[in-house]
Computed example of a mutant assay.
Amino acid sequence: MAAEASPLVSWAQLVGQHALALFFVGLLLAVGASGLGCVLLQRRRARRDQDDPSARNVGRLLGGYATGFLLIVGTASLFAVIARRLGPGRTMGLADQALADGIGSHTPAAALRAFGLFTHLGDPIVLAVLGAVVALWLWQRQARLLAAGWVIALGGNALLNPLLKQVFARARPLHELQVPQIEGYSFPSGHSSGALVAYGMLLYVATRLLPLRWHAVAVMAAVGLVLTIACSRVFLRVHFASDVAAGLLSGLSWLAVCVASLQFVRHRHANQPRGPRR
Results as ranks from 00 to 15, higher is better:
S192G: 05
R278N: 10
A241D: 04
D52M: 04
W11C: 03
T91A: 15
A241R: 05
A114Q: 08
L236N: 07
V15M: 13
A230D: 05
T107S: 14
R278S: 12
G68Y: 06
R213M: 03
A241Y: 04
L61H: 08
S192Y: 03
A109D: 14
H175S: 10
V15R: 13
V81M: 05
F240H: 14
G275L: 15
A109R: 14
P88D: 09
P188L: 03
C258P: 05
C38E: 15
A158G: 15
S189P: 01
G275P: 07
V129Y: 08
G155R: 07
A270F: 07
G190N: 04
A66V: 09
L249H: 02
S77P: 01
G93W: 11
V265A: 14
G68M: 15
A114W: 15
F187V: 00
A19Q: 04
P211C: 06
G251Y: 09
P162N: 09
P108G: 14
S242R: 06
G275M: 14
I82A: 01
L117D: 05
G102S: 14
I229T: 07
D123W: 07
L202D: 05
L121N: 04
Q166N: 11
L121W: 07
R170G: 04
L145W: 12
V81Q: 12
A153C: 08
S10M: 11
L78G: 11
V15I: 15
D243S: 01
H18P: 03
L127M: 12
H120V: 02
